[in-house]
Computed example of a mutant assay.
Amino acid sequence: MTRFDADATAERIALVADAIAAHRDRESAFCTLEADSDPGDDPDFLPPWVQFADGTLNLDCTDEELDALSTVLSGFGAFTITSRESIEDAPGTNVRVDARADDERTGQFVDAVFREVYGLPEDFRLWAVEI
């Protein structure tokens, strides 16, 4: 893999597909994709992220984001929630989504998650931070 970020839809989808392929080729534990976001003045801010491993996407969502995730899932039939885990005192829910799709379709889904679930603008920058 020679590039690790992208800020246009088609490029982000290709970045996700390439990161998943590199993860698979390297037989790594998982790959992590992270949005470039402005933390403002919040010292506890964590940028939105999605991890992929063994055909499963892992992400954290607030209750509002869970509702948006359900809407996104309705447009991607090959993706289904397999588990939700809420930890006491945690601000959200960890969600695992089974991805029965090729790498490009997974890239489309991941891009939709960042835009529609996390509410990022059309031109947000996505980084492959761990492969």
Rank of each mutant, 00 (worst) to 15 (best):
T2K: 14
R3V: 12
F4V: 12
D5K: 14
D5M: 11
A10E: 15
L15F: 06
L15V: 14
V16S: 01
D18G: 10
I20S: 00
A22R: 11
D25L: 09
R26E: 13
E27A: 13
L33G: 08
S37W: 10
S37E: 15
S37Y: 12
D38F: 10
P39W: 10
F45L: 09
F45N: 08
L46S: 13
P48T: 07
Q51W: 01
Q51D: 15
F52T: 05
F52E: 10
D54I: 14
D54C: 15
L57W: 02
L57N: 06
L57C: 11
D60H: 01
D60A: 03
T62G: 15
E64D: 03
D67M: 10
D67G: 10
A68N: 15
A68T: 13
L69M: 00
L69T: 06
S70V: 00
T71R: 07
V72K: 02
V72W: 11
S74N: 09
F76Q: 05
F76A: 11
F76I: 02
G77V: 12
A78Y: 09
F79M: 14
T80V: 12
T80S: 14
R84E: 03
E85H: 01
I87N: 07
D89L: 12
P91F: 02
P91H: 07
G92I: 03
N94Q: 09
V97L: 11
A99G: 02
A99Y: 03
A101S: 15
D103A: 15
D103R: 13
D103I: 05
T106Y: 08
D111V: 08
R115H: 04
Y118W: 07
G119C: 05
E122V: 13
F124M: 03
R125F: 05
R125L: 05
L126A: 04
A128V: 10
V129R: 10
E130T: 04
I131R: 02
